[in-house]
Amino acid sequence: MKYLKQFFIILGVSFAGEFLGRQIPLPIPGSIYGLVIMFVCLFTGLIKVSDVKETSRFLLDIMPCLFIPAAVGLMEQWGIIKGSLPAYVVIVLVTTVLVMGVSGKITEFLMKKGEKK
């Protein structure tokens, strides 16, 4: 019954997160509250890693697949995207590359600096 119990805990935290997301008037979705709740529960020892280990591994393994339905939904959006398509393509490519590079490089630089002290 290991998997049932693990899935039960994960769904419970998801439900708590969803509840907070609906009650708190901020543009933050329930899944992010759920992530924070799970982290706090693990940190305080309320939930042990072994209570969720295998099932969370499974869910994280299949995570890329979970985005397929939403992304296929782009076919419905084609009408509104195509108008400014070249601008969007340039903006997405330039920002994705530079944001990833800048935040990664700055993190790495500050980590090295911290180690030298």
Binding site: I10, S14, S31, L35, I37, M38, S56, L59, C65
Partner: peptide
């Protein structure tokens, strides 16, 4: 499939 997205996001707390 999309339904599992919230539980999966919650699970990101485990490796963290």
């Amino acid at each position: 499939i999309s339904y599992l997205l919230t539980p999966a996001t919650v699970c990101l707390a485990v490796p963290l």
